[in-house]
Amino acid sequence: MARADVLIVSLGGTAGLREADEELAASLRRAGARVEIARTQRPPELRTYAALELAWALNARRAAVQAIREHTPRAVLYSSTTAALLGPVPGAIRFDAPAAGNRPGRHGIWQRPVEARRFNAAPLLVPWSEGGLEEAPTPRAGAVIVPVPVEPSGPPEVKDIAALTYGANPEKKGLDRVLAAWARNGRAGEELVVAGLDAAAGGEWLERAGGAAAGAVGGTGGTGGTVRFTGMIPRDEYRALLRRARVFVTAPRREDYGIAQLEALADGCLLVTNAAAGPYAALPLAWALDPRLVGDALDVRAALDDPVPGYAARAAAAVAPFGRAAVDRVVAEALLPRLVP
Rank of each mutant, 00 (worst) to 15 (best):
W205A: 05
W205H: 14
E207M: 08
R208M: 06
R208Y: 06
A209S: 00
G210L: 07
G211H: 08
A212L: 14
A212G: 15
A213K: 00
A213T: 01
A213I: 03
A214P: 07
A214L: 14
G215I: 12
G215H: 09
A216F: 05
A216L: 10
A216R: 14
G218H: 08
G218P: 08
G218N: 10
G219S: 11
G221T: 07
G222Y: 04
T223E: 11
G224C: 06
G224I: 06
G225E: 00
T226M: 02
T226V: 03
V227F: 03
R228Q: 02
F229D: 09
G231Y: 12
M232A: 13
I233Q: 02
I233N: 02
P234G: 11
R235P: 01
Y238V: 00
Y238L: 15
R239N: 10
A240L: 05
A240R: 14
L242M: 15
L242E: 15
L242T: 12
L242S: 02
R244A: 08
R244K: 09
R244H: 07
A245C: 06
R246K: 14
V247G: 07
V247D: 04
F248N: 01
F248S: 01
F248P: 02
T250V: 13
T250N: 08
R253D: 09
E255F: 05
D256H: 13
Y257K: 04
I259T: 15
I259C: 05
Q261E: 15
Q261P: 06
L262M: 13
